[in-house]
Design a protein around this nucleic acid. Structure first.
Lengths: 147, 147
DNA sequence: GCCCGTAGTGATACTTAGTATCACTTAAGG
DNA sequence: CCTTAAGTGATACTAAGTATCACTACGGGC
């Protein structure tokens, strides 16, 4: 099940607590890494009563609207959904080894965007970053290098 | 039809010149903005002899492998394909007004990624940026502001 | 210039992610 | 409690992309 803080955030967004949302959020919380909609559907089916497929998508949508969940596009164009600590729009560092996703604060990104605006005479409106690599825990096992 | 430089780049990637590739590349070149697979399929159907749907996707795949095309995910999770001047992996500034996409050189991005690596003890491997906003030409007509 | 192997093509069928619909259920405010 | 609007599940659907397979044609070698 989802932690109380997640429930609070659902309520704060003006949405109802339902067993389905609780389950979906709970599975995401326990996973601690981005899950595809299919994985989620399956996981939710195993643990507890199960949730309709349509509801899984609706729930993800609601939670995303509420700023509790965000989705990233993994390499290979796979969408994956991910419980976020930080509310509001932000970005992620995704570890390809263990799948963990680290939140990226807006103020880490803002200076970069500002620089782009200057360099390109372009007014930035919205940005989506997906940064992949290897997290501190997984470094040491392997070393990868690409652009 | 595609310009000679595009043909050269197809050859350079060890791929054959076919009327279909020529058409697809040509349409993308003329559009000068990212097109969805569906738009492309339709446009190719109008201009000239037409190309099978499967072939449109395969062609985009080949051209992407060859570094001639890249795809971006537009807001709303719409994939769009885009002819790139710059070869190799790079990023784009996409104008939401006119759809134009500006190439973003790797060395504009590298320092930012390096900073992230330091700040998060994370070894960056691959990154995908989608930056949306308003280009210089379109600024003046409207002013937008969001994260 | 022609021949041949291999890369590429088109039609079609399929898969997978996500959306729409609609009758039914249930959370939660009074 | 009771009401009602939000949420749910089943199902059908769409849209993007992939697989298959017989057929075609590019282009290197002669």
């Amino acid at each position: 099940m989802a932690s109380d803080t997640v429930r609070d955030r659902i309520l704060a967004a003006g949405q109802r607590i339902t067993p389905q949302r609780d389950l979906v959020a709970g599975v995401l919380e326990q996973a601690g890494r981005p899950l595809s909609a299919a994985e989620l559907y399956e996981a939710v089916g195993r643990s507890g009563r199960g949730v309709g497929r349509a509801t899984v998508f609706r729930t993800l949508q609601s939670l995303e609207d509420a700023g509790i969940v965000q989705h990233v596009v993994l390499p290979g164009n796979q969408a994956a959904y991910l419980l976020c600590q930080v509310a509001g729009h932000h970005h992620h560092l995704v570890c390809r080894q263990c799948g963990a996703a680290d939140d990226l604060a807006e103020d880490e990104v803002a200076p970069f965007l500002a620089a782009l605006e200057g360099g390109h005479r372009f007014q930035v409106d919205h940005a989506n970053f997906a940064v992949y690599g290897t997290c501190a825990r997984c470094t040491g096992d392997r070393a990868s290098t690409t652009s």
